[in-house]
Design a binder for these strands. Structure first.
Lengths: 128, 128
DNA sequence: CCAACATATTGACACCTGTCGATGTCTGAT
DNA sequence: ATCAGACATCGACAGGTGTCAATATGTTGG
């Protein structure tokens, strides 16, 4: 099997991060490079990195827009925009409770993305 | 000034990738997020991802501009530009032999970068 | 129903970026 | 010395991106 050892419900993210094989495995085709680049562009921004880091370090694992606005020092629409980019990329989930919107990490999404960059055979063995 | 002694230092890369702690460790500060974002922007491009992948999968570990131009289907100045971005980011090294310029992976650079994205306490250096 | 609030969307703006043609620079060979 | 070839740099252009003010949407409480 290629991957997806246990993917019961979190498919969209893993799907996004499983766009292609690890970089060092085989030369990337044009379309694979496009997909991976789109994922990386989603996180290649200071504000979005701080948002990811903020969510990842929360005890309860979630952050609302209002909190993030204070921490980042950006206008509310800007924060909403960045959150949307991360959700669209499949890295965060959005849950609206009452008036507030809570964002949380999609489990395994960042790690899967990191796995595509590692040159050392990390997980799944690769018998060529 | 432009004399850049062929210092065999592998430091700049690791230095670049060690700009900050892993995302999930502590909330990123503004300047740390800037540095990490600059690194990620360097690889968040289809052409540069293909170049990295091309170099990483070569048996001898190096690729010259001419070869890359053919594979990517881009003009020679464009390929040179992308290589320069990757070298400046500390991900590739450039060695000129005769008329040709050979690019190779900086050992551990990509892996260090990937380590900053992983949420699970990975290997990497665990000081302090 | 209405007011207050949190969030999302829209529109506009300045800025950055990928691309290529033209040109410069350096090396190896005739 | 001169020429050809590989590569880097420059200048210019189109397209993408981050930011915010203004506005829209939707929810809670009175």
């Amino acid at each position: 099997m290629t991957t997806v050892p246990t993917a019961p419900t979190l498919l969209p993210v893993l799907d996004a991060a499983s766009c292609c094989e690890p970089i060092a495995r085989a030369p990337l085709a044009a379309d694979q490079a496009d997909q991976l680049a789109r994922l990386l562009k989603a996180i290649a921004d200071p504000a979005r990195l701080r948002l990811l880091s903020l969510v990842a370090t929360q005890d309860d694992g979630e952050v609302c827009t209002c909190d993030a606005t204070d921490v980042l020092g950006l206008a509310q629409p800007t924060v909403s925009h960045h959150f949307k980019v991360l959700v669209d990329a499949g890295l965060l989930t959005r849950e609206k409770r009452g008036v507030w919107a809570y964002y949380a990490l999609v489990p395994g999404a960042l790690d899967a993305l990191a796995g595509l960059l590692t040159t050392t055979t990390a997980t799944t063995t690769g018998p060529r």
